Simulated assay, not measured.
Amino acid sequence: MQLLVRDMTEEYAKQILTWKYEAPYDFYNNEESAESLTELLENPYYAVLNQDHELLGFLCIGSAAQVPFGSTVGAYNEDLQDIGIGMDPAITGQGFGTPFFTFILSYIQETYQLDSIRLTVAKFNQRAIHLYTKLGFVKKVEFSRNTTEFLTMVKHF
């Protein structure tokens, strides 16, 4: 399957905001609000489409990919580019994570010529952590915000 990265549009953003994940991944559900729409449109978010131009997921880079509280506890002290991803819940848990994220990593490397990249994941999301580890990410910093524990992971290219 061929994947494409496109600029985020209002149509894609509105579609993403309607995605609803099953528990425990409902942690990643977005609120359908003007503020959430603005977040997706005014920050470096990109749509990931299949060859039929159907929205499969998104990626974001920079501080938009960070958990804001993490900065207050030193989780982002190392000067690295951050990446965040999301996949349509209709296709999660079906073995598509590896080709999806491999494509995104290739895109990021080609576009930004980075030596290293960092991501942040909720610690309960063992499915994602397994994928990230398989693709060469290593655990770095753990921190908590309220009742949620987070983990940063870094990959060196």
Results as ranks from 00 to 15, higher is better:
4 L>G: 07
4 L>W: 12
4 L>D: 11
5 V>E: 02
5 V>K: 05
5 V>T: 08
6 R>Q: 12
7 D>H: 13
8 M>D: 02
8 M>Y: 01
9 T>A: 02
9 T>I: 00
10 E>V: 07
10 E>N: 08
10 E>G: 07
10 E>P: 07
11 E>H: 10
12 Y>V: 04
13 A>L: 02
14 K>E: 09
14 K>W: 06
14 K>F: 04
15 Q>C: 07
15 Q>P: 05
16 I>E: 03
16 I>D: 00
17 L>W: 01
18 T>V: 08
19 W>Y: 05
19 W>Q: 05
19 W>P: 02
20 K>S: 10
22 E>R: 12
22 E>N: 11
23 A>Q: 12
23 A>S: 14
23 A>T: 13
24 P>R: 02
24 P>G: 00
25 Y>P: 04
25 Y>F: 15
25 Y>T: 06
27 F>P: 07
28 Y>E: 08
28 Y>R: 08
29 N>D: 15
30 N>W: 15
31 E>H: 09
31 E>C: 06
34 A>N: 13
34 A>E: 15
34 A>D: 15
34 A>K: 14
34 A>I: 12
35 E>I: 12
36 S>F: 01
37 L>T: 08
37 L>G: 10
38 T>P: 06
38 T>I: 11
39 E>K: 14
39 E>L: 14
39 E>C: 11
40 L>H: 10
42 E>F: 01
43 N>A: 08
44 P>M: 01
44 P>F: 00
44 P>H: 04
45 Y>H: 15
47 A>I: 05
47 A>C: 06
47 A>N: 04
47 A>T: 06
47 A>F: 02
49 L>M: 07
49 L>W: 03
50 N>E: 06
50 N>H: 01
50 N>P: 02
52 D>A: 14
52 D>S: 13
52 D>E: 15
53 H>D: 15
53 H>T: 11
55 L>I: 01
56 L>R: 03
57 G>E: 02
57 G>L: 04
57 G>P: 08
